[in-house]
């Protein structure tokens, strides 16, 4: 039987960190994911690309079960988290997520945004939570903004705070859902640089993005999705250089 404790226990398996098995997702009659099988190894930087409506975001949100798959199972760190008995709240503390629209808490300042879950979920005392928050803010270069409110920050800064907020939980994997899509062009780089730094430190990452440069430079693996299926899966440079599937070729010819 699956024990709920295993979500936070130290990693003891040598297999993939995340495993998706036969994932199907319907929104009413709309078949969004049509049988996804995917294994994500530790320290992998998996970049997911594809046309809009291809199911990239739904796939990403299935990993921490923000979208519950209609069929199939998700195994995280050796635990089948689609099992109804698993404490999902506990599992999610190990899976960081960053959103397209930042989703910072507007009524909390930067420090409060980061420490909220540390204190209320991980039950860390205030002083230590603050230390962790400052540490992560330094990480993203925003320690001087600790007392400001999200509304006072630029989009790029807000997104870096969102990254710091997720990192402060010390997750085992980070999910990025089109995190630069809402940003003004001149602010994209600072967020991508932060993500690149994270990849260099060996964080396991799943990145849904339209930034082909990032996919090529930082990604260790590329998945191209179309109409709810994985069409192509391999090394980024390889796929960019010579895409095998017709749909991948067509997509890349439009975005590159």
């Amino acid at each position: 039987m699956i024990e709920t404790q295993s979500a936070t226990a130290p990693r003891n398996t040598t297999g993939p960190l995340v495993e998706l098995i036969g994932i199907h997702k319907w929104f009413d009659t709309n078949h969004v994911l049509k049988g996804i099988d995917l294994k994500i190894d530790p320290k992998q930087v998996l970049v997911v690309i594809g046309p809009s409506g291809s199911g990239k975001s739904t796939l990403l949100r299935s990993i921490n079960l923000l979208e519950e798959p209609t069929e199939g199972s998700v195994i995280f760190d050796g635990t089948e988290i689609t099992d109804i008995r698993v404490d999902l709240d506990k599992v999610r503390t190990d899976i960081g997520m960053v959103f397209q629209s930042y989703n910072l808490f507007p009524h909390k300042n930067v420090l409060g945004n980061i420490t909220l879950a540390l204190r209320k979920v991980l039950k860390i005392d205030e002083r230590e939570a603050k230390e962790r928050a400052i540490e992560q803010l330094k990480h993203v270069g925003l320690e001087h903004k600790a007392d400001q409110y999200p509304g006072q920050l630029s989009g790029g800064q807000q997104q870096r705070v969102a990254i710091a907020r997720a990192l402060a939980m010390r997750p085992k994997v980070m999910l990025f859902d089109e995190v630069t899509s809402a940003l003004d062009p001149e602010l994209v780089k600072e967020v991508l640089d932060t993500m690149k730094g994270l990849a260099d430190e060996g964080m396991t990452m799943v990145v849904v993005t339209h930034e082909m440069g990032f996919a090529r430079e930082v990604g260790t693996r590329l998945v191209f999705m179309d109409e709810g299926q994985v069409v192509e899966d391999g090394a980024p440079r390889e796929i960019f250089a010579n895409p095998r599937d017709e749909r991948t070729q067509s997509f890349l010819s439009h975005v590159l």
């Binding site: 709240d89 959103f99 989703n103 997720a166």
Partner: peptide, 12 residues
Amino acid sequence: GQMEAARSLGMS
């Protein structure tokens, strides 16, 4: 997105 962000951080 506020609910999703909070849930993704492990809040009930």
